[in-house]
């Protein structure tokens, strides 16, 4: 079996290498890929969309339809993880650990037990309990606002520097996940509950598709942002730039929410009570 697989893989590699003999040279500015469609993007994207970053212009305007489906792919992944992993059964876990805030005494409640009275003085801690680490918690709390600010900067500056919705959304999601890792899952869930992540992820894609739908209802083709000129009160070219920005916001919201939702589902194995 191993030899057969090796043969198949080598055959595949040989076929690909055979194909490369007719490739244009690497970095050749006169290759077909560099001279057919892309010169139009390079020459005309600034005057047609008022966005200096050509990659963003192509991503969100010329090939914006692909990007809408890309956002739906990420939404589908979040939905799929939720569908596959989420455990709704209200079965009590085998044992829960509680810590008395004032004295630091830890209690273990076995299955079927009840929490002692004065429960507000106790806080729930994870089964794989790690000692309270002042340095990690304080450092993360200090750093988090800057990470989130940077994420918003990346989203907003997608027009002028490398960036955009996906990149900014992932950074923002990473900030939330950092909070979940340095503190615990339950406090993150209080900050950003599960229901809000699902609503945000669906809402982000709806912003994108809704923008296209508005263009359609205004009489133009789907995702033709120039039709938004009337609503936004600018000329059609600036309307394209604003349209790109609106859909990038939608993408950022959706990606951030899905990253967080994926983490919630995978780290707590669907139970949403304890994390990593």
């Amino acid at each position: 079996m191993k030899r057969f697989a090796l043969l198949a893989v080598l055959l595949f590699g040989a076929l690909l290498v055979y194909g490369t003999t007719d490739f244009p040279d690497w970095g050749d500015p006169s290759s077909p890929a560099a001279t057919h469609v892309s010169p139009h993007y390079i020459r005309h994207s600034l005057e047609e969309t008022a966005v200096p970053n050509i990659v963003t212009a192509v991503l969100a305007d010329y090939r914006g339809y692909d990007t809408m489906f890309e956002t739906s792919v990420i939404f589908t992944a979040g939905l799929a993880c939720f569908f596959l992993l989420r455990v709704f059964a209200r079965k009590a876990p085998d044992s829960r650990l509680y810590r008395h805030r004032a004295t630091g005494i830890t209690l273990r409640i076995e299955q079927g037990g009840r929490l002692p009275e004065g429960a507000r003085e106790f806080e729930r801690i994870d089964s794989q309990w790690v000692p309270y680490d002042l340095i990690i918690r304080t450092a993360c709390r200090l750093v988090l606002p800057f990470i989130q600010l940077f994420a918003l900067y990346v989203v907003a500056h997608g027009h002028h520097s490398p960036g955009g919705g996906f990149q900014g959304g992932v950074i923002f999601g990473a900030a939330v996940i950092l909070y979940a890792i340095s503190h615990d899952l339950r406090s993150t869930l209080q900050m950003l509950p599960e229901r809000r992540t699902v609503l945000m992820s669906a809402g982000g894609v709806l912003i994108y598709a809704g923008t296209g739908l508005i263009c359609l209802l205004l009489g133009a083709q789907f995702l033709d942002y120039a039709a938004l000129a009337g609503i936004l009160g600018v000329d059609p070219i600036m309307a394209r730039s604003h349209g790109i920005f609106i859909v990038e916001i939608g993408v950022a919201i959706a990606v951030m929410a899905v990253m967080v939702s994926l983490y919630y589902n995978l780290a707590s194995v669907g139970r949403f009570d304890e994390g990593l």
Partner: peptide, 11 residues
Amino acid sequence: PATIINPLPHV
């Protein structure tokens, strides 16, 4: 176009 890389594959 000869001085700017092709943006389409990146997209």
